[in-house]
Simulated assay, not measured.
Amino acid sequence: MKLLFIINPGSGSHDINLKEVISTHFKGGDVNIELFELPDDCSLDKIKAKIEQSQPDRVVAVGGDGTLKLVAECLLNKEIPIGIIPAGSANGMAKELGIPQEITEALDLLKNGKTQKIHVVKINDEICIHLSDLGFNAYLVKKFDTLPERGMWGYAKATWHALWNHKRMDVELNIKGETIKSKAAMVAIANATMYGSGLKINPDGKLDDELFEIVLVKDYSYLEILKVWITRLPFNPKKVEIFQTSAIKISSKHKAHFQVDGEYMGKINTVEAHILPAAITVIV
């Protein structure tokens, strides 16, 4: 078996030498490995060229959700399975798939794990494998990227700042010909069920059906989300509503902060999204 590791050296806050850990783990075994560290100016074309040149049996994303998204874009609708080594700040998709957060345990899974096809969501010109949103959380992601602290402490500081500074939006959702107008703190396009922090925003989400969820958070209802997470009771529809769909158009009266899989994309007025069924294969 040949494994190609796509390593993002800028992911997370750890001081582990990822190349050394991976090389040591597979030394003397029957797995052939190749390591490709993402350069600062890396493009999708460079990663695709590396995959084509390497001809691996499996490609492994070493980093956070953003690194996994890059690899997934290169392998859309291809049969090559994608492995995940969680080395980012939050590692939401790894947690979603039950992949061990301990790196050596995750490395063991690459050879022995089973494969599963999952869908992704095409959002404007991007793909989303985990969670995307307009509003509060996207503003939080923007703020988090400017802070020197990483990990959960940085996330807590960014959340506090966002709660004080972000304003609600006027949004319009067009789902299956029906139009819903609302004030909103945030609108999430949820492929997965929870953020990397463990906060479960989409309790009914599945990665292998042909639907995704729209989570309309009408006010700053983190307490409501925490209540659902702890008690498993349904959301209060006055605060949070969930819609299932395979396509949607979201419009905001004023430009709103927007993020995809933890990457801040700027401020936009309109989001169009649709499902790409069974688009990638992951090792779980």
Rank of each mutant, 00 (worst) to 15 (best):
L3D: 07
L4I: 05
L4W: 05
F5W: 00
I7Q: 04
N8Y: 09
H14F: 09
I16A: 10
N17H: 12
L18F: 11
V21M: 08
G28H: 11
N32Y: 02
F36M: 08
F36Y: 15
L38Q: 02
S43P: 13
L44N: 11
A49K: 09
E52L: 00
P56W: 00
D57R: 03
D57P: 05
V59C: 05
V62T: 08
G63V: 07
G66L: 05
K69M: 14
L70W: 12
A72N: 05
E73A: 09
C74K: 03
K78G: 08
I80E: 01
I85H: 12
G88H: 03
S89A: 02
A90R: 07
N91V: 09
G92P: 14
E96P: 10
E102N: 14
E102M: 03
E102G: 00
E102L: 04
E105P: 01
L110I: 05
G113T: 06
G113H: 01
Q116V: 02
I118N: 05
H119S: 12
V121N: 03
I123F: 07
N124K: 01
I127N: 12
L131T: 02
S132F: 12
G135I: 14
F136C: 09
Y139C: 01
L140C: 15
L140I: 12
E149W: 04
R150G: 09
Y155K: 05
H166W: 14
H166C: 14
E172D: 04
N174D: 13
A188F: 13
I189G: 06
N191W: 04
N191I: 01
N191E: 02
A192K: 02
G196V: 01
S197R: 06
G198T: 11
G205C: 08
L207I: 13
D209M: 00
K218I: 11
S221P: 10
V228W: 06
R232T: 15
K239Y: 11
I242R: 12
I242G: 10
F243D: 10
I248C: 08
A256W: 14
H257E: 01
V271A: 08
E272G: 00
A273R: 04
H274P: 02
I280R: 01
I280E: 06
T281I: 03
V284F: 08
